[in-house]
Design a binder for these strands. Structure first.
Ligand SMILES: [Zn+2]
Length: 155
DNA sequence: TCGTTTTGACCCTCA
DNA sequence: GTGAGGGTCAAAACG
């Protein structure tokens, strides 16, 4: 048995020419303020986006691109009000930030990288930054750490 | 061409 | 057992 478990999607090919131009996907506030996620020095790939009605915000899911890094990032922002951006980091990186993931051949020599932070959790700093970014109006609960409820079967 | 983003569907847990 | 809610995957679109 078993079988057919690989059929995840019924697959419906609906080819419609002339769909809407996506134009700006980012949220634009009435005044041209685009939502941009602060960079942390790591590379993430977005693997999902959902609207959480409970908080009335859009939540984006990012995962570290590194091979064996289970680090994940989650970004929440209001669908209407700009300025409320919340970023939560999950997991730890098993690699250094200096690891070149980019295969670019000639790099502009990384001359002295200005690394003023110690080799601790850079993510932590992010958290603080997030507060500044999202801390403008409502400050619900700001106690997010890495200890989440590992939903799902965790090894 | 391939990697990343986008988006719907599917999976799992809780009530 | 169903529904709501939240999280992840994968095909397609885009660059
Ligand atoms: Zn990582």
């Amino acid at each position: 048995m078993s079988d057919a478990s690989h059929s995840r999607q019924p697959s419906m090919e609906i080819d419609q020419d002339g769909y809407r131009d996506q134009d700006d996907q980012q949220d634009i506030d009435g005044r041209g303020y685009r939502l941009v996620l602060p960079e942390d020095g790591y590379e993430w790939k977005k693997y999902g986006q959902k609207f959480i009605k409970n908080i009335g915000k859009v939540r984006s899911y990012f995962k570290c691109q590194r091979s064996n890094c289970g680090a994940k990032k989650r970004a929440d922002w209001s669908t209407s009000e700009a300025g409320s951006l919340r970023v939560v980091y999950d997991g730890l990186h098993s690699h250094s930030q200096s690891d070149d993931l980019h295969h670019h051949g000639t790099t502009t020599t990384s001359s002295s990288s200005s690394n003023s932070m110690s080799t601790r959790s850079t993510a932590n700093q992010y958290d603080l930054l997030t507060q500044v970014f999202g801390d403008h109006r409502s400050l619900t609960n700001n106690s997010h750490h890495d200890d989440h409820h590992q939903h799902h079967h965790q090894n």
